[in-house]
Simulated scan of single mutants.
Amino acid sequence: MANGCEIFCEILIAILLPPLGVCLRHGCCSVEFWLCVLLTILGYIPGIIYALYVIVFLHRDEYFSEERRPLYASA
């Protein structure tokens, strides 16, 4: 399970270099990575938004335990 410092570092890297942040989480041969590269080439801000989405929201059940899950999340 990722702790707060790891997530903060991933978010910081995703803001500076969006594809690198996605690569660290999902690997460099994933669809998420290549989509982030494409969005970053088309515009830096869409690349950042997608990278943050991938890091924070995609597969969050694997990284957050039940007691840290937000109240609005369904089981």
Rank of each mutant, 00 (worst) to 15 (best):
L39A: 10
V22Q: 05
G4V: 08
Y63N: 06
P18A: 04
L20P: 04
A14R: 02
I11D: 06
C5T: 14
C29K: 15
E6L: 11
I11Q: 10
V31L: 13
P19A: 05
S65D: 14
S74Q: 13
I45L: 14
A75G: 06
L39C: 11
I45R: 03
A14E: 04
L42F: 10
L39Q: 06
I45D: 01
R69A: 10
C29I: 13
I41L: 14
L42S: 08
R68C: 07
I45G: 00
L16S: 12
G27T: 08
D61G: 09
Y44C: 01
L20Q: 11
I15S: 10
E6K: 13
S74P: 03
L52K: 05
L38E: 10
I41G: 05
W34L: 08
A2I: 11
N3I: 03
Y63G: 03
I48Y: 00
P46W: 00
H26I: 02
Y44P: 00
Y63A: 06
F33R: 02
L38K: 10
H26F: 14
I49N: 02
L12M: 12
E32S: 12
W34M: 07
E6D: 14
D61Y: 05
Y63V: 10
V22L: 04
R68I: 04
L52M: 11
E32P: 00
E10V: 00
T40W: 00
E32N: 13
Y63M: 07
S30N: 08
I41C: 09
I7W: 02
I15D: 06
P19C: 04
Y72V: 12
C23T: 09
I13K: 12
E67A: 12
H59W: 06
H26A: 12
R69E: 10
A2V: 12
Y44G: 05
L39Y: 09
Y72R: 04
F8L: 15
F8H: 08
L17C: 14
S30F: 02
F8D: 10
L24N: 09
Y50V: 00
I11G: 06
C28F: 12
T40K: 02
E66Q: 09
H59S: 13
G47M: 00
I49Q: 04
C5K: 15
F33C: 12
E66P: 01
L17I: 15
A73I: 04
R69P: 00
I49P: 01
I55A: 03
C29Q: 11
I45P: 00
R25G: 01
P19Y: 03
L58Y: 15
E32C: 09
P19D: 07
C28K: 12
N3G: 15
D61S: 11
V56K: 05
A51Y: 00
G43Q: 03
G21W: 00
